[in-house]
Computed example of a mutant assay.
Amino acid sequence: MALRHLSLPELARRYLAKDPLSLDAEERKVLESFKERRPISQDSVEIEEAQASFGDRLADQVAAIGGSWGFIISFGVILFGWMLLNSDILSHWNLAFDPYPYIFLNLMLSMLAAIQAPVIMMSQNRQGDRDRVAASHDYEVNLRAEIEIMRLHEKMDALLERLDRDDAQISR
């Protein structure tokens, strides 16, 4: 049977056993692509990246850098250098601009943490959005595959019925 002749409500009842009015957007999209015989798969990363703003991409970069071992090690070296410079080297000439207890260093670290934490949270929120897009897309692809399998079963059943009829006519 040609699918193009079936309406969306008929497809919904036949393959999803649902009232067409109760279809969600994903199910409607799957049935439309099924009826029109066009593929539904897409790369969910490309979909999400197309929707990302400059701030979103910047948050991802900051989180990627701030959460790396390279950043942690280099930041530790800088902190150790700062303390060594202000405690030992510059203090010999009374030029230490931030002597122990490193009040200016604490201020800088607090400011960095105040800025970095919300940016990392933005990146985590984006990851959650990415996961939701991927899950929705996976559902659509799985539903489409299930409908295609049901359609193939119908074709096989029709073919087997026709073969049985042909065998019955030959045996008479």
Rank of each mutant, 00 (worst) to 15 (best):
Q51R: 15
I170T: 06
A50T: 10
F80P: 06
A134S: 07
E10Y: 02
D164C: 01
R38C: 06
E48A: 15
F104C: 00
G70N: 09
P9L: 05
L31A: 05
L105T: 10
A117I: 08
Y15R: 00
L84Q: 05
A145N: 11
Q51P: 01
F34R: 01
E148P: 00
G67Q: 04
P101K: 04
I72T: 13
S68H: 11
A52C: 05
L6W: 06
Y102S: 07
W69H: 02
P101T: 05
L109S: 06
S171E: 14
L95C: 08
D164G: 02
S87R: 13
A2V: 03
A17W: 14
A59V: 07
K29Y: 15
I89F: 12
I147N: 00
E46N: 06
F34S: 03
S7G: 11
Y15G: 00
I120Y: 04
A25Y: 04
A12D: 07
S44G: 06
G76C: 12
H5Y: 15
R126F: 14
I65G: 04
F80Q: 00
L8Q: 07
I65V: 15
V119H: 13
F75K: 06
I147V: 11
G67A: 00
D164K: 03
M1C: 08
I115M: 12
L21G: 15
L109W: 11
R151E: 04
R14S: 06
M1S: 14
E154D: 13
L163S: 03
E26F: 07
L107A: 06
M1E: 12
M83V: 09
L85M: 10
W69Y: 10
L152E: 15
I103H: 14
I149N: 11
